[in-house]
Design a binder for these strands. Structure first.
Length: 327
DNA sequence: AACTTTGTCAACCGCTACTGG
DNA sequence: GCCAGTAGCGGTTGACAAAGT
């Protein structure tokens, strides 16, 4: 654990003293509380000042990162939906490793999350195939094999759920150009009543306070259920089915940020996470994605998140061998 | 059961761009 | 124009958990 690791010894006395006061490593419950409370009152920005005034022994940089990637209420957790994966594939093919730019088109997803996803899922597949993730061979595999299957996955789910009926503009631009057979998908925007609820800081604070009172809990998704008393039975059961919180995965018992995030799981489930994740996308500007300039960059494997694996490694190897290049 | 390997992802680092004095 | 402070980006690290042996 990288807690309270101090900086190098080649520093001036004053900077050493400064560093000695600075904490590093994983954030504690108390630090999260301080940060969230401060931002609730004063808003974000001026991070160095914020860190000092909030009483945090952290750099402004660290505070900013913690807020943007973890504590900010609209940060979305859980597996990326096939639609999101498709969008990432497409945008990465256009922009490369411009994670922040890509993240702008996936509301609730952070650049860090997308970057991690790419490195752990996509590049892994390239490694397994022993192909350079940036090679044209790998691009072809993605374009010809993986993306159509991902699209099939999306198409299949659209018949049984509302996922595709609430397709985002961004995704609806991607789908037809990669898979004409799916171009008839409804692309209607969500009706107004399904728009994502505006963030209510008071709810978040309530959740935090509640969590503080019940910090013995080690559960994840149900820890903030009290804030969602109006949930019906089906909503509750869906909640328990939702992929585990990364906070649970971290094993941070008593970390109240779990609670913060749980609140948003709950809220999100009010709107049907699967359907609304992309439905509520507000895509700034026109992606300008055309069939003509569509050329894949690094690939997405797409199947990794699904129990019924979409990708068949044998088939991919066939693909690779047919390509006969770039080992 | 014990140990090793692999995968995940939060957090850090270094750099560049921007802004205001 | 120069400088310092700040914000933001992309690459990398390392702790931890899960999977494999």
């Amino acid at each position: 654990m990288r807690v309270n690791i101090m900086s190098s010894s080649k520093k001036t006395t004053s900077s050493r003293e400064d560093d000695a006061e600075l904490r590093r490593g994983p954030w504690t419950l108390e630090e999260d509380t301080l940060l969230v409370h401060y931002i609730a009152r004063h808003g974000e920005g001026r991070w160095n000042l914020l860190a000092k005034r909030a009483g945090l022994r952290r750099t402004g940089k660290s505070c900013r990162l913690r807020w943007l990637n973890y504590l900010k209420p609209d940060v979305k957790r859980g597996n990326l939906t096939p639609q999101e994966q498709l969008l990432i594939l497409d945008l990465h093919s256009k922009w490369g490793n411009r994670w922040s730019k890509i993240a702008q088109h996936l509301p609730g997803r952070t650049d860090n999350e997308i970057k991690n996803y790419w490195r752990t899922r996509v590049q892994k597949q390239a490694r397994h195939l022993r192909i350079d993730a940036n090679s044209t061979a790998f691009q072809d595999i993605i374009r010809r094999s993986w993306m159509p299957r991902l699209l099939q996955k999306i198409g299949g789910s659209s018949t049984s759920s509302s996922a595709m009926t609430c397709q985002s503009p961004a995704v609806s631009q991607v789908i037809p150009s990669y898979a004409p057979q799916f171009s008839a998908f409804p692309t209607a925007l969500p009706p107004p009543q399904q728009q994502e609820a505006p963030f209510d800081m008071s709810v978040m604070m309530h959740c935090m306070e509640h969590r503080e009172q019940t910090s013995d809990s080690e559960h994840g998704t149900s820890s903030c259920i009290s804030s969602a008393e109006s949930m019906n039975v089906s909503q509750m059961s869906r909640l328990s089915e939702y992929p585990k919180s990364p906070f649970q995965a971290m094993g941070n018992n008593g970390d109240y940020s779990t609670l913060v995030k749980d609140c948003y799981y709950v809220d999100s489930n009010f709107y049907d996470m699967e359907a609304i994740n992309l439905a509520t996308m507000s895509v700034p500007g026109d992606l300008g994605i055309s069939a003509a300039d569509r050329h894949m960059g690094d690939g997405d494997w797409a199947g990794y998140d699904f129990g019924d694996t979409v990708w068949n490694m044998d088939e991919l190897w066939q693909f690779r061998n047919l390509q006969g290049k770039e080992i």
